[in-house]
Amino acid sequence: MKRFLLLLLIFTVSCASLGSGKQQGSFSLVSEKDEYYIGRLTAAKILKKYPLLHNDRLTEYLTDIASYLAIYSKRPFIYRGYHAGVLNTEKPMALSTPGGFILISKGLIKKLDNEDQLAAVIAHEIGHISNKHGLSYIKTAYLVDLGATLSRKIAKRKIEKERSQKLLNIAVDVADVLLKRGYSRKQEEEADKEAIRILKKSGYNPYALIEVLEKMKKISRNAPIQFTRTHPIPERRIEILKKVATRKKPSQKRTFRFQSYKNML
């Protein structure tokens, strides 16, 4: 009977997650706190492959941009706030994990011209976090693991160890998706849409997102790069964005600010 109820629960939630396509489904069961710990381990997995550049001033700068932009997102507050850092690799890439970790490579920052373009990249990543895209890749594993934990009575210590192990497994799954496959086209478009909204409201140039995508398109023509795998560059995305993104001249002060940080790379 217990097992039947458990299967019913899993089935019901799975159906809900497949249904509307809105931010419902299994990951609505994941609390803010769970999301943070899952994202933290996912980030740790990614950072094993691409370690950080330890530069306090640059990290502070990125974190300031992310925290400022987040105010204008759907989720200004997440469990432990937004964190942003620079990956110490020349590969142009940007990633975000559940729980608010935003990772941008120095290779990508070097290709940007101004702060508005950097803000556009970060706003796009916030779009993934606020739409809980990363969590959508853990639904099955999460539910199965959850079911297993609920249906057994084990010593507390053992449960803690098992949960930690499950978290590690989930982190592997999510990191794998982010590094190898990337988000789906629909999710990328959702993140773009959210990014434009954030950029408009925060005072940055919304058109900067198009500028970044066009840069990446140009680069990927010459040589396939990591960024194209994690962020596919379909013309379709640029076309859609051109209909909604307005142009705004980036301020000189911001451009100088960006250059002074870029020079640190």
Binding site: D34, E160, L167, L168
Partner: peptide, 21 residues
């Protein structure tokens, strides 16, 4: 009960595990 990480997550259980930074 539905909180996988919040209750029971102990960093000591994952610290030092290979493959994570």
């Amino acid at each position: 009960a539905i909180s996988l990480a919040a209750k029971g997550f102990e960093e000591s259980n994952v610290t030092g595990v290979k493959g994570y930074n």
